[in-house]
């Protein structure tokens, strides 16, 4: 036969156990969400660097110099339009101010000397081994000569 105090003790223990389980469940959920957020945050800078590099080079080969954004494509007056991937035989250096992630930009013809438009020293932390860089290439036609437009983008 149970006394009131025994039932009370059993109830308290049961309640304590339920509260502990509730807290542990909440903790597990929060820990999972935290790890998810940290994982996403660590992957974001690399993604942002890749995206800026890809889209910057894409804009270079598709815009001409008359646009507000830097561009290297030639304007065909006969067609009355900019010709993506086709550069004039002697392309001029694009305006590269305001693009701090751009480390270097080179135009390397298949047969001929390369042209370097940008080559900045790394300005990031002293331990430059931690700097992340991505290199992207685009094929263009310079006059009648095929060339690779190579851009290197770094986060430091």
């Amino acid at each position: 036969m149970n006394t009131t105090s025994e039932r009370g003790l059993l109830f308290s223990t049961d309640l304590l156990l339920a509260v502990v389980i509730l807290l542990l469940t909440s903790l597990a959920g929060l820990a999972f969400l935290s790890s998810l957020a940290l994982h996403s945050a660590s992957a974001l800078p690399a993604y942002r660097l890749q995206r800026q590099g890809l889209f910057f080079l894409d804009a270079l080969v598709k815009n001409d110099a008359s646009q507000s954004f830097p561009g290297l494509a030639a304007f065909d007056s006969g067609l009355h339009r900019v010709t993506p991937n086709f550069l004039s035989p002697a392309p001029t250096a694009p305006e590269l101010q305001g693009f701090p992630l751009l480390q270097s930009l080179r135009l390397v013809p298949f047969n001929g000397p390369e042209t370097q438009w940008a080559d900045k020293p790394l300005t990031g932390p002293a331990n430059q081994a931690s700097t992340t860089c991505y290199s992207f290439e685009r094929l263009v036609l310079v006059g009648k000569e095929k060339a690779l437009l190579i851009g290197v983008f770094c986060d430091g």
Binding site: L54, D58, V61, T83, P84, N85, F86, E137, R138, L139, V140, L141, K144, K146
Partner: peptide, 13 residues
């Protein structure tokens, strides 16, 4: 993008 570059350049030249 690079595949597209090759195709456009081949057709253009």
């Amino acid at each position: 993008q690079k595949q597209h570059d090759l195709l456009v350049v081949w057709v253009g030249q």
